[in-house]
Computed example of a mutant assay.
Amino acid sequence: MSITGGGYMGTSRAVLAGVAVCALLSTAACGKSDSPGAAPAGAGSTAAAAAGKTSAAPADARTELLDATAKTSGTTSSYTTEVISEGDKVSSGTGKIDPARHANSSKSEFFGQGAGSMEMVVIGTDLYLKMNMAFAGTAAGSWMHIDGQQAGSLTKLGINADDPANLSSLPAGLVSVEKTGPGSFKGILDLTRTPAGKATMQQLGDAAKQIDFRATVGDGHLVALMIIVPSAIQMPAYTTTLRYSDFGAPVTIAAPAGAKPAPPALLEALK
């Protein structure tokens, strides 16, 4: 969640991106919710911002939101993710983050086409992955290990050990932001300004420059972020929602016992 939607199992990279907290600043085919209750507090309509303009955000609203985002990224936390498409849940997940140890863990479930579940642990440059369905010639239900150094880097696979939702990309993509109430924000993102920009343009075209978002801040932390992506090209509309909690609480993230090296077919599929 990259701001990702993670989602349908149509491509190999979408599978891993979905596990990576629906990495927020990159996109994969998913869908939009028409349910008003799905949005964090303060959700409402956002006027379109002109593509390519520099940020029009009032300094106080922009600063408050980005400071809260940095505070969330800088401490241990728990999170939940949900992707909704055309009123249907596409995926959901839970996870924990320990940025000081460069570690995170997550469990994700996928619904509809390609239904299944995954678990992932990232510690430094090591990625551990377990799926309950066969994928790229691998057996279901067993832990696999991917050495990020051998794979080129986990970043190339859309994995960020310190920041699985890639919240650090938010400043680059922020076009406008408005504070709509205590702790509530709405605005526009230009996903082409983020590291996932090229892939985003291929999937969304010019729509990638005008992405609505809603955010909620509590006790100085970013506690909820919703990305609302319209339908474009061959992609359906989708909404990705992340919620954070348990800031500063102890987190235990350990390498799974008995993990075996991932087969070359899996590494090749993720390139």
Rank of each mutant, 00 (worst) to 15 (best):
G137E: 05
S153N: 11
S142H: 10
T4Y: 10
D212Q: 14
V121Y: 04
M144D: 02
T63M: 00
T80C: 05
Q202G: 12
A50L: 10
G220F: 05
G137R: 05
S45W: 10
K53E: 13
A224K: 09
A56T: 15
A57T: 09
G6L: 13
K89W: 03
S91E: 14
Q149V: 02
K179T: 08
T216N: 11
A115W: 03
A14G: 14
L174E: 03
L65M: 10
T69K: 07
R214C: 07
I97R: 03
V223Y: 02
S245G: 07
A139F: 02
A70C: 06
G218T: 14
R243H: 08
A23F: 14
S106D: 06
A207K: 14
G95L: 05
T75Y: 01
G7V: 11
V223H: 02
V175E: 00
A257M: 10
M144Q: 13
L174I: 01
L65K: 11
F247A: 03
Q210T: 14
A28P: 05
W143G: 06
S184F: 00
E64K: 15
A208Y: 03
L154F: 08
A100T: 07
S55H: 01
T252H: 10
K32M: 08
G258E: 09
L270T: 06
G37Y: 13
G152M: 09
A139I: 00
D60F: 02
A17H: 13
I233S: 12
K156Y: 02
A151D: 05
G31F: 10
A49F: 00
V15D: 14
S245W: 06
M131S: 15
G197R: 03
L167A: 12
V175K: 01
L170H: 07
G5E: 08
L66S: 09
T192W: 02
S35L: 12
A23Y: 15
T63L: 02
T81G: 11
F135P: 07
Y79G: 05
D206E: 14
G31V: 10
L191D: 03
D60P: 00
V217I: 09
K198P: 07
M144F: 13
